[in-house]
Nucleic acid binder design. Structure first.
Lengths: 183, 183
DNA sequence: CTCATGTGAGACATTTTCGTCTCATCGAAG
DNA sequence: CTTCGATGAGACGAAAATGTCTCACATGAG
């Protein structure tokens, strides 16, 4: 009977991604549990969002670890990262658009830490001559987040096939839409 | 004294993008007007969001017109589109992440219409051999939205320079991050 | 079986937000 | 100056959401 905390968080993220103004009652119903039970595990809406944030950061950092970004070429590292991040894409999509909820007070250093790792990865790729240098690492980092979020959203909306997630994101991020001579 | 309806909508979009659960009072304060005045112009939160949606679609369709997507190469058309869309990026960024607020009932055919135009543009580019055919028009359309939203967000957060908006988006969308031989 | 634990449903008071209202004020037009 | 229209501030009740509580029930352990 013990409730699956992580499962609750995932369905909450899925709902809040679609409807950010959802009620605690709606969140509970979406998770298939009672409002009282939801309250027993998360003191309130803020606590719920913080838990979502913690879970998202934890999973993202785990994905960064699993991707072994410093092994092989940058392209290989990026492909591994996108693959590792796919299961968390929905959750991350929510957090990317909601991480401003706690205004100013605590920016969550975990997010900064992950940001720094991704940014450093792109910078390293530039120094190696594998990534273009006219796009800043900061922008490439943001674009990566944006495309992962967009990908998750597009799949959920049924506009693109779920199996294409990794391919679409990696290919667009690496090669863009232009048809080049080498293809 | 007559209140600038559009200005109110813009500041509302800016606030709601950051904090989607903002109250009507916060929206009013952000716009520098009283809550009563806000209510005189928009019956309620739903009416406000619908007005935002209408304005966003109107501006996006105007941008599509201004971009003359069928003139010149696809790349030129895309550059014109991004340039034309820049002033509305903040508003569009909000709508992209909130267009699911009216669940199921009315998907707003204006949005579908705009979607179809963008999608057709990418398809045309593919038929001309200017865009790769292994990325679907639907995905390219979504990616365009995502990158525009991410660009607006990144600039607002101060992570990238405002003057780079067009360049960053167009270059990434067209050429990707990979450093190719021709560069 | 008996018990302990965790749960769902719902009641309840409190808090927040909403929608409407009044009234004083400001500024422009006449 | 006077009038008119729009606004800001705030009061007010209604509605919604929240947080806490009780209680019956189900499940698993002993």
């Amino acid at each position: 009977m013990t409730l699956d905390r992580e499962q609750v968080l995932r369905s909450a993220a899925a709902l809040l991604t679609r409807k950010s103004t959802a009620t605690m009652d709606e969140v509970a119903k979406a998770a298939g549990i009672g409002r009282a039970t939801l309250h027993r595990h998360f003191a309130g809406r803020d606590a719920l969002v913080k838990a979502l944030e913690s879970l998202g950061i934890q999973e993202f950092e785990a994905a960064l670890d699993a991707a072994r970004l410093d092994e092989g070429t940058s392209e290989e590292g990026l492909r591994r990262l996108i693959a590792a991040v796919e299961p968390s894409a929905g959750l991350l999509s929510f957090l990317v658009n909601e991480n401003q909820l706690f205004e100013g007070d605590e920016v969550n250093e975990g997010w900064d830490r992950a940001d720094a790792r991704v940014s450093a990865f792109f910078r390293r790729g530039q120094e190696r001559g594998e990534f273009r240098i006219d796009l800043t690492p900061a922008w490439l980092t943001e674009a990566l987040y944006g495309l992962v979020g967009t990908g998750a959203w597009s799949i959920q909306a049924g506009r693109v096939a779920a199996q294409d997630f990794q391919y679409m994101i990696v290919e667009l991020l690496l090669g863009g839409a232009r048809r080049s001579v080498e293809q």
